[in-house]
Amino acid sequence: MQILQYLINGISIGSVYAIIALGYTMVYGIAKMLNFAHGDIIMVGAYISFCVTSYLGLPAWVSVVAAVAVCTVLGIVIEGLAYKPLRGTPSLAVLITAIGVSYFLQNAAQLIWSSSPKNFTSVVTMKPISLAGGKIVVTGEVLLTVAACILVMVGLTLFTSKTRTGKAMRAVSEDRDAAQLMGINVNQTISTTFAIGSALAAVAGVLLCSTVPTLQPTTGSMPGIRAFTAAVFGGIGSIPGAMLGGILLGIIETFSKAYLSTQFSDAIVFSVLIVILLVKPAGLLGKQIQEKV
């Protein structure tokens, strides 16, 4: 029975990683950049939600909408100011700029909200469900997280396969120059990708802080790195891959904490990543692209 409980917890935290990883993987697939500031957008989203519920006293769903709106705008602004001017330059230049943006967001948050941790009140009011005579407890947060994760996954898959913008995104990620020749507005497509990624980050931020209630300016960085690992794990650039990677990473993390070692859970998670990459160098669902001579 205990094992089922761990599995549920693992899927729950894995779903949060999966939502963050989706943002990473979309941006990587389309703009070919490692956006290290993504984790800090999560933190901003959580702070916005915190402010709306705690200071303005508005209901939880309003706070989620506000967080999504602010983060979407933030994502577009960051992309336009910091990343767009560097389009076509070596990826390392963009990477360093992303790190600069990440520092900026963390320190701006520290100035605005101070570095002392805030106690985030969960957006879920549902009572936990007890199964199998109280041996397994499913909290409202778990249900909401998993539901949000499935919804996002289905939504994104439909979006990229059915809509014009989604198809444009796939075309840009496949071959940017060819897409431009076909009349696709590449810059606008990349902006849209950042907007979607940042909106997802806001959702992930609220869900993450509902599960782990301490909120401080560095809240986003570790889940950010984890989710990034998850995206690579599943094959970076692939939407189902990010989903699979996130959930597997969450399960591995919970199980290694429960059965192997609490202190070494980080080492175990990252070792699994290394092993996977050695066996399948492009990740679980990634495409292996043969280099042309």
């Binding site: 001017p85 560097l86 070596p90 230049a93 520092y103 900026f104 100035l111």
Partner: peptide
């Protein structure tokens, strides 16, 4: 004090933009 790391971040971004951006 509190502003130094934020200034550092801004300097970092600006230096990257000035040294790499084709438009600049």
């Amino acid at each position: 004090q509190d502003y130094r790391m934020i200034l550092y971040a801004i300097v970092l971004i600006l230096v990257m933009l000035f040294t790499w951006s084709p438009k600049v």
